[in-house]
Amino acid sequence: MYYNNNDVRLEELPIPEVGSDELLLRIEASGICGSDVMEWYRIQRAPTVLGHEVAGTVAQVGSGVSQFREGDRLVVTHHVPCNACRYCLSGSHTVCDTLRATSYDPGGFCEYVRLPAINVDRGAIPIPDGVPFDEASVAEPLACVYRGQRRANIQPGQTVLVLGSGLAVSTDLSDFRLEAARRLGADETLRADQYTPDRLREVNDGRLADLVIVATGARPALLQAIESVDRDGTVLFYAPTEPGVEIPVSINDVFFRNGATFTTTYAAAPGDLTTALDLIASGRVQIGDMISHHLPLAETDLGFKLTAGASDSLKVIVEPQR
């Protein structure tokens, strides 16, 4: 039960009762998302059970459910679209009103969740054979990354700068995360407190970045992103900021003369999740190397502290059945 980032308690709740078109999922793995530790955002709903990056086993099947059976291994999404509104029909599922209103009961940091009928219908995806639960739980954040890359129109041969430990050229304040970025494929890593666009030019043949992905909501990183994008390049704002954060942008210099594009991304559509699971199953994305901690449910509070600190951890997975 989440009260704040430093107060996550182990509490007893009744196992949810399942209706005719619903499922009961036994949670095997649940990842802690960066959004879970955005205290300014989560505190509004506290106390609550968080967790939306989940993988588990079907423990009970409602009488009206025919596509799943007890023992099936599933990844399930908490937010699902209607697939019928003007946004969904144009491919913009993540701005659908239904997606913003749906969830499961109670949340992923628990032993069992109830999947409402709409989540069973369009938010439950079988885990491919050979994919362990911990890696499968990372399908949801990977799907968000995949959607962001599509929106940014990432192309082979581009120079990609990730502000907030990523691959290609990565910046961060954490040496632990910079080392992880190097190990996972980054061509260059630069400390964020020493980073300037000139440093990027030094490691990139005199050029700025074709694509800048801002994976942090820190205002200095937002300003760095604008200064670091090359002509006709793109800035993808991947992480939200705290309320009230604004940045100055010169329309003439950034957009009119240099042709830069700014875009954002939020969440993922069911199709993105299916693609993410395929990427994991095929081994094209080595999820296992990105998981730094496996914790039992009783140590979820430690997981929140590790994720909020964002220095000596990568992906933290809670395993309620340990």
Rank of each mutant, 00 (worst) to 15 (best):
I15V: 15
P16M: 02
E17R: 10
S20F: 11
D21Q: 14
I32F: 11
C33E: 06
D36F: 08
Q44M: 10
E53N: 12
T57L: 01
Q67S: 11
E70G: 14
G71P: 00
H79V: 01
N83Q: 11
H93G: 02
Y104C: 04
Y104L: 09
G108M: 05
F109C: 11
E111K: 05
V113L: 04
V113K: 04
A117T: 02
V120M: 00
G130K: 07
L142V: 08
V145C: 10
R151N: 07
I154M: 13
Q155A: 11
V162P: 11
G166I: 01
V169W: 10
S174N: 12
D175F: 07
E179G: 13
A180Q: 15
R183G: 15
D193Y: 05
E202I: 03
V203H: 02
D205C: 11
G206A: 01
L211V: 14
A215R: 09
P220M: 02
S228F: 00
S228I: 07
Y238D: 12
T241Q: 08
T241S: 14
S250Q: 06
V254D: 12
T263Q: 04
T265R: 00
A267R: 09
G271P: 00
A281H: 00
I287S: 05
H293M: 08
L295H: 08
L302N: 14
K305P: 15
